[in-house]
Design a protein around this nucleic acid. Sequence first.
DNA 1: CAAAGCTGTCACCGGGCGGCGACATTCTGC
DNA 2: GCAGAATGTCGCCGCCCGGTGACAGCTTTG
Lengths: 220, 220
Amino acid sequence: MLNDPMVLAPVSDATRVEPEKRIRDRGATEKAILNAAKALLAEEGFQNFGINAVARRAGCDKQLIYRYYGGLNGLVEAIGADLGNWVKDRIPEDTGGMFLLTYGDLMERLSLLFLEALREDPLVRRIVAWEVSENTEQVRRLSEARSKALANWLDRMRGSLTPPKGLDVVAVNAILIAAIQHLVLSASAGGQCAGLALKTSKDWEKAATALKRIVRGVYG
Amino acid sequence: MLNDPMVLAPVSDATRVEPEKRIRDRGATEKAILNAAKALLAEEGFQNFGINAVARRAGCDKQLIYRYYGGLNGLVEAIGADLGNWVKDRIPEDTGGMFLLTYGDLMERLSLLFLEALREDPLVRRIVAWEVSENTEQVRRLSEARSKALANWLDRMRGSLTPPKGLDVVAVNAILIAAIQHLVLSASAGGQCAGLALKTSKDWEKAATALKRIVRGVYG
DNA sequence: CAAAGCTGTCACCGGGCGGCGACATTCTGC
DNA sequence: GCAGAATGTCGCCGCCCGGTGACAGCTTTG
């Protein structure tokens, strides 16, 4: 009664634009929402990541996010599920025909691969930044998924190579991963890290060389 | 704690409670605001860091923040100014009576000192997390102040020790710093990093040992 | 004394947020 | 054909945000 619809004398003239009806396809809509969420997170970061923003981006009503994903939490969980396949998608499973004779060979290669992969994946970068910035249930889920995937990958790649004795490989690798992650995040946010410029590919070569030296130093 | 909301009890009757007048002291108020801001940032992180929250915490009206600091930007800048003295305040200037014979000795010690200092300073941790999460003017200022202070500190501590030749020390040190920062941030947020638990002091000993091995590996 | 300035407080604005109920339209099963 | 479910849309709510103008009380200055 408030708005008598027919009073609206719809744009009668030639400027008439078809209302672009959204097709009714739950599957497609769900995908659109998920993609919108991932793109939004990748591009804008977790700061302005919210129901309204995702809905706007997906071009649908936010109500559908509640219906199909149970709200933001569920949506984030869905993103986390994808994340399980991250390493699979992003990092070559085989070692590129190289012969990895030692654990040092392996870790050098994996470090560089990981660095590359992270540099090229804005979504995961944002998630890592999120992980170190908040400690909500949402983030914890994401973090868990990511770390599990990463651990599996490391394990698979190790193959039958035995790590050196007398060295806490878990701790050392954690530090290496931390270094890579922070390096990439820092570069992504400010173009540098602790005085080291990280913009041009030349900058990155220097970083990669230093990283190699570090890995070789500890793993021989 | 500061100003009970009971102040808004109207001037009713004999139950008149003295409204706890805030003393008029611009200097003290400015300090209160700055401290509130730092405490808030340290405890809650940059997520909900805003004019209203700071004013609430400082127990004063937000208008004063605009007047005295020119808004949040100015306030953040004031925080950044303090940051310049961070290393000075937090990290012993002398080397604790140790004889640092080699660059490796130095960097091992500095790494551990930096790790310790960061672990014990929630404010700077939040700032570092902020740095990798956003790229606004505010954050850039903070970041710059911090990195400058850090560089100065490294330089002072180096003294007359000459770094090894044939090694890009800037890059290597940047990676070491990145590792430490990410390790601490990760621990602070989720109690672990890449599968390495970082809660108990025993956990941290393992991390420190691994870090030493890495530093020694690259710097001898 | 009064005027002018400083300090602190309050109320209000527009806007975006998350969340929800109600409705419109289309599809499905009987 | 019809009822009910599925899908999509709309408008509203209460809340908090940043920002600003107006005002009240104290202090300094003349």
